[in-house]
């Protein structure tokens, strides 16, 4: 015999997070010259709106979320929804205000210009 007394069915009171979007580090190339540091990161499938670049307290954080859509029954799937995330330490000599980024063909190009005081300087020797 059923001796349940609840009038309405019980809602789940302890929601459990059971799905998590995988976090991977994107592959990057880093180049430097006298004026700037250039960082190229591969973020295939990430739209411009879903990329964040954050420079805070000497830490550069790049994140990008990719949402894929399924176009039918999957025969196989080797990639899917993913969160790209990678954190770098940046030298204090970077001029944070002038950092600029562009996203083209799934590659994020981040230009980190060095501040004027940090650039190498040729010192001219005056004849006495």
């Amino acid at each position: 015999m059923n001796n349940k007394t609840e009038l309405v069915t019980r809602e789940e009171t302890t929601p459990v997070q059971s799905r998590q979007i995988p976090v991977v580090a994107p592959e990057v190339d880093i180049y430097e010259d006298n004026d700037e540091i250039l960082l190229n990161a591969e973020l295939p499938g990430v739209a411009k709106e879903d990329v964040t670049v954050n420079v805070d307290n000497g830490k550069l954080t790049i994140t990008g979320i990719r949402k894929m859509f399924a176009a039918g029954a999957a025969k196989w799937a080797e990639f899917g929804d993913v969160e790209y995330r990678r954190i770098f330490s940046v030298p204090q000599t970077i001029d944070v205000a002038k950092v600029n980024a562009e996203l083209r063909d799934g590659v994020l190009r981040l230009h980190l210009p060095k501040s004027e005081t940090a650039k190498p300087r040729q010192i001219e020797i005056k004849a006495a």
Binding site: E42, M68, G72, A73, W76, E78, F79, G80, G106, V107
Partner: peptide, 26 residues
């Protein structure tokens, strides 16, 4: 997938196949 080969997804949508491949920078 072996290093350097793009990852792919293949979907069968009844009357056509949909194939996706990761090719950043190309």
């Amino acid at each position: 997938v072996t290093e350097g080969t793009p990852r792919t997804n293949i979907y069968d949508a009844g009357d056509h196949f949909e194939i996706m491949a990761e090719v950043p920078g190309l």
